[in-house]
């Protein structure tokens, strides 16, 4: 048991290494018919290096990254603000809840045709999609987080002399953080998934657009490079918020 525990920190690399070895072997030995569609891992690595060196990957990655950062930051901040007000003020919650509940289930990409007509094809379009994708879930999680804070803490703070605003900022918001972070963590990954899809359909630059170009040229290795970049970015964004949450709430939650 104790030996297993000691192995755990590096243990996750082993299955990945096995997977890559099998991939490389299967592709090199042409074990799958039509090997053209299944390049070895080493070829993908080579292509990654080539695309990075000639700046194509960097350029497209940066386009996607900027869109995600702007759209996600704006959507999250707006979501936090609206969600906080909804969670704190019952009257606002009752007024906005029906609208939010109605719009929340619409998939972010469902807005694409409408936004293409309203905003046109340009930088605003993917940012707006990411904004919508982040805004509603974060509103929902924040409002729920604030509403579910034990009312007794609010009463205690009141007897200790805190004003409503102080109670909100010093007691309710910190206690709602775990819920808020759940929303931020999930939506930060979702933002990448959505931007790739949006770029594939409607935008000429970015990782999604690069994938579509690779598809038309039947460059499977480039598609896989893009997928790996996407996976790493989703993973990194989610891990960043996990880290931030642990930093802010780890000592008590």
């Amino acid at each position: 048991m104790s030996k297993l525990k000691k192995l755990r920190p590096g243990w996750g690399i082993v299955p990945i290494a096995i997977f890559l070895t099998i991939w490389e072997t299967v592709a090199r030995l042409n074990l799958i018919p039509g090997h053209f569609f299944f390049p070895p891992f080493s070829t993908v690595v080579g292509e990654f290096y080539y695309l990075t060196a000639n700046g194509v990957l960097g350029h497209n990655f940066l386009s996607s990254l900027v869109r995600v950062l702007i759209g996600f930051s704006a959507g999250s901040l707006a979501g936090l603000l609206v969600g906080t007000i909804m969670g704190w003020k019952d009257v606002v919650n009752k007024s906005l809840s029906p609208i939010i509940s109605l719009i929340y289930p619409i998939p972010a990409l469902g807005w694409l045709p409408l936004l293409m007509l309203w905003l046109g094809i340009g930088e605003t379009l993917p940012i707006a999609i990411i904004f919508i994708c982040s805004f509603f879930p974060i509103v929902y999680n924040t409002a729920t987080g604030i509403r579910t804070v034990d009312k007794n803490y609010i009463q205690v703070a009141r007897t200790l002399g805190a004003s409503d605003m102080k109670i909100l900022t010093t007691v309710v918001m910190p206690l709602a953080l775990p819920n808020i972070f759940t929303g931020l963590r999930l939506e930060s990954g979702m933002a990448w998934r959505v931007i790739i899809a949006a770029e594939m359909v409607a935008i000429p630059t970015g990782i999604g657009a690069l994938m579509m170009k690779a598809e038309s040229l039947m460059r499977i290795d480039i598609i896989i490079v893009c997928l790996i970049v996407l996976a790493v970015m989703c993973f990194s964004f989610e891990k960043f918020f996990t880290f931030l949450e642990a930093k802010l709430t780890g000592q008590w939650s």
Partner: peptide, 30 residues
């Protein structure tokens, strides 16, 4: 807050996100 009362609730409700010193200092801080 203007009645100058100290209230000890049945389930105490110490703020879980504050350490002991911060819990005690809460009313003085606000």
């Amino acid at each position: 807050r203007k009645r100058k009362i100290g209230y000890l609730f049945q389930n105490l409700n110490l703020f879980p996100h504050m350490d002991v010193a911060s819990n005690i200092a809460y009313s003085l801080k606000v």
